[in-house]
Amino acid sequence: MLELFLHLLLLFGLSPLLPGVIGKTKALFAGRVGPPFLQSYYDIWKLLGKGLVISRTTTWVFRAGPVLGLAVPVLAALLVPFGAIGAPLSFAGDLIFFVYLFGLSRFFTAAAALDTGSSFEGMGAAREVTFSCLAEPTVFFCFIVLARLSGSLSLDAMFGQALNAGWQSAGPSLVLVLACLFVVVLVENCRIPFDDPNTHLELTMIHEVMVLDHSGPDFGMILYGAAMKLFVLGALVVRLVFPGATENVLLDTLLFSGSMLLLAVVIGVVESTMARLRLLRVPQLLVGTMLLSFFSLILLLR
């Protein structure tokens, strides 16, 4: 029970801090002061207090998008261990559940975008769906590698103690898995070099264009959900890098929170040093990542 409470506390409390840290890192690189660390909390709070404008052409699907966008990361978070704090919910095969939970929220976000009837949003939905269907095999190959290493089909065990032994016996393929998962984190959360969360140029937007028509509390939910998604997927990467566990719960929590912030800094550095890829190059890079994850599987199996 305590574990569940701690899990949700970390998720709800800490996740909006990550975009703040990324923003601060980017500002530091650009020589600006940048928005405060807590800016995302202010934004979400402000949006939740605002009124809601809904187009008359939309249906219930339009409202369902943000709700699922918020609910899915919370559910998915329950399957993922946060550092050494084990997952509250875990069963054999939950890795497939995990991937398709995000598939569900993506479907509803895209459907909500299409529901507005704007061709512009339809374009964004098409791009989002294309890229994520290329990212999905990568996730599965990475999970298969981890499942093989741990001999288990639940995320809690795959990202559990077996990782320590895994780094000893199959270091190179875990390095590849780490790189692939990091790319997946960037793609799924619409970060540079795949998508620029700040751009509002119609030719380049992907995720941002799908949520243009949402306002007020709905948009607040989308922002909160996006922050949580970054947190959940980031937790996988962080766990892969720091597989150890101390016996102390407090220490584990601190270690996990610190490493999540470190991940946010790394993402900020990547965003500051790289340019956004041309749209045509993105699928190419994603296929490359997929092949890399496939190669890591070969390396493990031989």
Binding site: P283, Q284, V287, L291, F294, F295, I298, R302
Partner: peptide, 21 residues
């Protein structure tokens, strides 16, 4: 194209690993 070449390259690499065993 680059993507098909990459695919072929990966297949060849996988083949090389299997074959050398």
């Amino acid at each position: 194209g680059y993507v098909p070449t990459l695919l072929l390259g990966t297949l060849a690499t996988a083949g090389a690993f299997i074959f050398s065993d």
